[in-house]
Amino acid sequence: MRPVTLLEVARHAGVSQATASRVLNGSPRIPGAGLTERVRKAAAELGYVPNAQAQALARSLTGLVGLVVRDIADPYFSSIARGVQHVAREHDRQVLLSCTEGDLGAELEAVTSFISHRADALILVGSQLTRRSEHDRLLSSELKRYHDLGGQVAVIGQARPGVDSVVPENRAGAAALAEALVGQGHRRFAVLTGPVELRTAVDRTTGFTEALRRHGLEPVAMVPGEFTRDGGFDACRRLVDEFGLARGRNGMCLLVVNDVMAIGAMACLRDRGMRVPQDVQVAGFDDIVTVKDHVPALTTVCLPLEEMGKTAMRMVLTDTARRRPRSMTVRGEVMLRDSTRLRS
């Protein structure tokens, strides 16, 4: 006779598998008395025998939180990590960091490793892909299994089914930036789009171009590149070489999908003898800490990066015995600075 599964108990009780797990596996994060009684009654009626390994995971609190980021050298990720760490210290938790360098296999390995070391919670930071892959399927399955056993999960970027999420409004922020620049008098634009397979890059590029089209404008060029300083340098170099960008009074405004790329683009322009903003204007996205001291100061969309990290950490520290995951959207604020200033 095959053993009764936790999923069968959950269905019999009319609750989620996560709720059933918290009741039967001894998690301190259990639901109210009514739900608890229903789950225990269903388990007794079906003859369910709890799994010892699942009970061990549900009951243990190691004080460890796994944080998975794409590139810790990028101030976008390090600022978020600082916010996570700040809240962790307040609650006597330790943060374990894994940097994937954009390797999808490394992301999955980090998650499985943190789970095997019984981290109480996981926070994943970074863009998802535009197309669902086998890696994404495996990762979602691993996160669901962990969550069903009582683990806490939050993502920063795009929402994932069944877990908490902190979601920056990339498309809306990019559109607001383009609108502000058109309002300043800019009429000729090029876009450094970032990696075409990342949803963050695609959403920001879409936001830029849709806003421009509302004013009857089209980018003269759209050049992809990596989400790095060197990626921005190389994309700008291709723009200069292939599209004939040259010195000229108020000739072109570059919309760049993140600040790190924008810094690389400005370095390329200096290398080619062009001045920002006198010859070419540049705008980025994120408002990373380093751009506040950059000369000229970079026009960008400010995201509260550290606060995003704090929010995700608070989410995973909160009891999640509920049916629906939480999702918080984060708006960006356009910051017009010297890098897009037009000469009068």
Rank of each mutant, 00 (worst) to 15 (best):
E8D: 10
A10P: 00
A10D: 08
V15K: 05
A20N: 01
S21M: 02
R22N: 05
V23N: 05
G26N: 07
P31A: 10
G34T: 10
R38A: 08
V39K: 06
V39C: 05
R40F: 11
A43S: 08
A52V: 04
Q53V: 10
A54H: 06
A56S: 12
L57S: 09
S60R: 13
G63W: 11
V68E: 05
Y76N: 00
F77A: 00
V84A: 06
V87Y: 00
R93L: 15
L97M: 13
L97I: 00
G102D: 04
L104E: 14
E109N: 13
S113N: 08
A119G: 01
V125N: 02
S133M: 03
H135M: 15
D136H: 04
R137A: 11
L138E: 03
L143Y: 03
K144M: 09
G150N: 10
G151T: 07
A154K: 03
V155N: 02
Q158H: 09
P161G: 04
V163F: 00
V163Y: 00
S165F: 07
E169L: 13
R171S: 09
A174W: 01
V182K: 09
G183P: 01
Q184E: 13
G185F: 14
R188L: 14
T193S: 13
P195N: 14
A201H: 08
D203T: 11
T205N: 10
F208C: 09
E210N: 11
A211F: 12
H215D: 14
G216V: 09
E218Y: 06
P219H: 04
V220D: 01
A221C: 14
G225W: 08
E226K: 15
F227L: 14
D230S: 15
C236V: 02
C236T: 11
D241G: 03
F243E: 15
G251Y: 14
M252D: 01
N258L: 07
M266N: 06
A267W: 02
A267T: 06
C268I: 00
L269N: 03
A283R: 01
D287R: 05
I288L: 01
V291L: 10
H294L: 15
P296H: 01
L305H: 00
T311S: 02
M313W: 07
R314Y: 04
M315A: 06
T318M: 06
P325T: 05
V330M: 05
R331F: 08
E333L: 08
V334E: 13
L336D: 01
D338R: 15
